[in-house]
Write a protein that binds this DNA or RNA. Structure first.
Length: 459
RNA sequence: UGCCCGAUAGUGUAACGGUAGCACGACAGAUUCUGAUUCUGUUUGUCGGGGUUCAAAUCCCUGUCGGGCAACCA
């Protein structure tokens, strides 16, 4: 083995006296052999007294097992409290474990500790800036110290720490994410609600939107909480420009156009993306029976409601003006369907007489619509900072996933995985890459559109 | 307790010692065949107290608050 590797380690209690427990042992790996050396001075002097270390030979790695029979459990370092820098006080560099390794098997019983490994592997790999999260800040002196003692290539790596990303309504620590997976609060590491790259990808976030978000968040040492709104904004900003528009009704209410001829249909022209003329147009089938969103009709609408209600006229996007004539209910009083009339003069969406309507609704033709499973994802937690108090599991959002069957315009039937579209007035959606199959449509909601009406209605 | 780190608008982030800006949000208005988008405007900030300086978010001292470390984890 060519490189000379030098490390230090605490002594097993069996080998040394009480005072000696405060000394380092060096394993020097040379030509396949390790030489163990022990400084004759207390830890606080060790860094300057390296030259004086007494050497004893230990074969390494082949004989390590045999040579360190009593090292089953290296003693915990006895802290001298003499050094101001904590991590330079008798740091453990190797630990001895007589256990089979999941990969190396029985070959080794010596395992390097993080502080020894991190700086060296950085150096060997030619890392210049070794970036890590804040909790390793106090380890930096040891990181530097080890490299200072060794003939490593120059310039040597430097460790830089920064605060970890901490979005609202989310937990980020691996331990907690694992708990979410193992306790089945989510469906695996790539569940679209997970803040993993696999999850974000499956959800439909683009790489560039995540990069933009990270750029906005920046790299600092300040431990803040970043509003997920920034991420949502980032993906909306991108998809607004790139995603083609489609019509889909997720909570259907049947509309019958009473004065539209029975059994007939026609095709209307819809713009694919108003932000991108090159995206072109497509045909949208229209007929006597349609679906609109339940939320777009109110029998007794409040003042600022612009949508459909008894006697009101609204526009069906790309289609006609319609006026609600009557409401059909079941025995329990639930609205079953509504009856409207349309104005044939308003084909394409504008009236020759110049009259205006307040609302424009999206719709699909009932006879042409295709069904699809649609997964509506929301924030995983109900609290902005789930870890703030108590068990974060307690504030899981029970509505973080709603699965519904939507009515989609027929052009969505063969949307390939990887495509992202805007369902008009609803949000951005993409076929789920795992569960979508031929004839089995599954859509994930990436993010909803901004909805200032919903905000106002909540007041 | 000791040591280390941090603090700029509601949130996040900029500013050779030299005009405190940007994004998101919020609010108001305009445009609109998406209550979307777009556009315009408004709002709110350097943790406190000293000091150095012609000049401090920035340098020094001090306090406060928040976080980390004190493992045979990484």
């Amino acid at each position: 083995m060519r490189p000379v590797i030098l490390s230090s380690c605490t002594i097993t209690p069996c080998n040394l006296s009480a005072t000696a427990t405060r000394t380092f042992v060096i394993f020097r790996l040379r030509n396949g052999k390790a030489i163990a050396a022990r400084p004759s001075c207390p830890a606080r002097k060790a860094p300057t007294a390296i030259a004086a270390w007494r050497k004893t030979s230990i074969c390494f790695p082949a004989c390590a097992r045999a040579s360190l029979p009593m090292a089953r459990k290296p003693c915990a370092p006895r802290l001298t409290w003499l050094r101001r820098i904590l991590h330079l006080r008798d740091p453990v560099i190797y630990r001895i474990r007589h256990e089979a390794h999941h990969q190396a098997g029985e070959a080794w019983c010596i395992y390097p500790m993080y502080d020894f490994t991190h700086c060296l592997s950085d150096s060997i790999e030619g890392i210049s800036h070794s970036i890590c999260t804040l909790e390793f800040e106090v380890h930096r002196p040891l990181y530097d110290w080890v490299l200072d003692q060794l003939p490593v290539s120059q310039p040597r790596p430097h460790q830089h720490e920064f605060s970890r990303l901490n979005p609202t309504y989310m937990v980020m620590s691996k331990r907690k994410l694992r708990q979410l997976v193992e306790e089945n609060h989510v469906h695996g590491w790539d569940d679209p609600r997970m803040p993993t790259l696999a999850g974000y990808r499956r959800r439909g976030f683009t790489a560039s939107s995540i990069r933009n978000f990270c750029q906005g968040v920046g790299v600092t040492k300040f431990k803040g909480v970043t509003d997920v709104g920034l991420l949502e904004n980032s993906i909306r900003e991108e998809l607004n420009k790139t995603a083609e528009r489609r019509c889909a009704v997720l909570d259907p209410l049947e509309v019958v156009i009473d004065n539209y001829p029975e059994g007939e249909s026609e095709e209307l022209e819809a713009i694919n993306n108003p932000e991108d003329e090159a995206a072109g147009k497509r045909a949208l089938p229209f007929g006597r029976r349609l679906f609109i969103e339940r939320a777009d009709f109110m029998e007794d609408p409040p003042k600022k409601f612009f949508r459909l209600g008894p006697g009101r006229e609204v526009r069906l996007r790309y289609a006609y003006f319609i006026t609600c004539q009557s409401v059909e209910k079941d025995a329990a009083g639930n609205i079953q369907r509504i009856h409207c009339t349309y104005d044939p003069e308003t084909r394409g969406g504008s009236a020759p007489d110049g009259r205006k309507v307040k609302g424009t609704l999206h719709w699909v033709s009932a006879d042409h619509a295709v069904d699809a499973e649609v997964r509506l994802y929301d924030r995983l937690f109900t609290e902005a900072e789930p870890e703030a108090e108590g068990d974060f599991i307690d504030c899981l959002n029970p509505n973080s996933l709603k699965i519904i069957t939507g009515k989609l315009e027929p052009s969505l039937a063969d949307l390939p995985v990887g495509q992202r579209v805007q369902f008009e007035r609803l949000g951005y959606f993409t076929p789920d890459p795992k569960d979508s199959a031929e004839g089995q449509l599954v859509f994930n909601r990436i993010v909803a559109l901004r909805d200032s009406w919903a905000k106002q209605a909540r007041k």
